[in-house]
Design a binder for these strands. Structure first.
Lengths: 155, 155
DNA sequence: GCAATATAGTTTCATCTGAAACTATTATCA
DNA sequence: TGATAATAGTTTCAGATGAAACTATATTGC
């Protein structure tokens, strides 16, 4: 059975490869996928776990709720990442004075070791990733990303 | 128990909010999430399903393998999206002459209806999303996205 | 002070996902 | 031709995910 010729249609077409949300998604998934593969192979670490470690490296003692505020993660993701990081001895908890629901989170000695190894890798990956852009292009891209992120939040 | 003051560390810190892969991921997830919510609410359609419909709207008769080539999806995702789209009567299949493994995929009349409604929405969403950018900025961003996507592929 | 409400964090449940195994068919080549 | 390898597409399985329900604790308002 031979496909009959398509009847002429008046409908607008859309080229996925020029559609900005699609392009963003492809780039983001490629980049995150590669990074995730490295973290997994080298440290058995997921990206949510790394994000928690990253903010705790910079802001020791945040609670899980505060980690949630500082990352684009929800509290379930944070709770799970924290549970795994405790099990693998990368973070530890200390009581919050005056609130027995929450706990301060800190990188352990082990956690700091992982952190100290990942940071240079991350910087280097980013450097290689943007090596084809001039400093000016890189700044421009950053600025436009900011604008778009703000815009996306209000749509 | 009062947290003891953190011992001074020599380690480099990394600000997640300036890390390009993180920023890309946040923007992409925000944008895709909003679009997904709309597709789901309006059409009970997932993003993988929409991607399949989008390429079939433009290239009627592709096989699943060809859809895989033209989208950033793997064959499992395509297979599942195709199965759902058949069940909801948005696409139909016709035999490929000389190869009984593959089938040509086409939007049905129903599928064209959905497609014809989504395309203007998608264009409009993109327009609003980039409304804060000048034509020049928009072109610049597109160009840099291309560069970065190419770079990410080779890392 | 105590009932109602809010918050921190966890668990459950149903769904989604990717990798690998699988079936059916086609291509290669000795 | 028949054995082997490659390809199209599907299914299975184990783990990831998000929404909603849940526990424990804290805050608010009467």
């Amino acid at each position: 059975m031979r496909p009959e010729p398509a009847r002429a249609r008046r409908e607008e077409l859309l080229a996925l490869e020029h559609f900005l949300p699609y392009r963003l998604s492809v780039l983001s998934n490629t980049v995150s996928g590669r990074i995730a593969k490295f973290y997994e192979a080298r440290f058995q670490l997921t990206i949510p776990e790394w994000r928690v470690m990253a903010v705790l490296g910079r802001f020791p003692g945040l609670t899980a709720a505060e980690v949630t505020e500082r990352t684009a993660m929800d509290k379930v993701q944070v709770s799970r990442a924290v549970a795994r990081l405790k099990k693998t001895h990368r973070i530890e908890q200390r009581a919050v004075e005056g609130d027995r629901r929450a706990r301060h989170l800190f990188l352990t000695e082990t956690g700091h070791g992982v952190y100290a190894e990942i940071v240079p890798f991350a910087r280097d990956y980013e450097r290689r990733f943007t090596a084809g852009l001039s400093a000016n292009e890189r700044a421009q891209f950053d600025r436009l990303l900011d604008k778009l992120t703000a815009a996306a939040g209000t749509l």
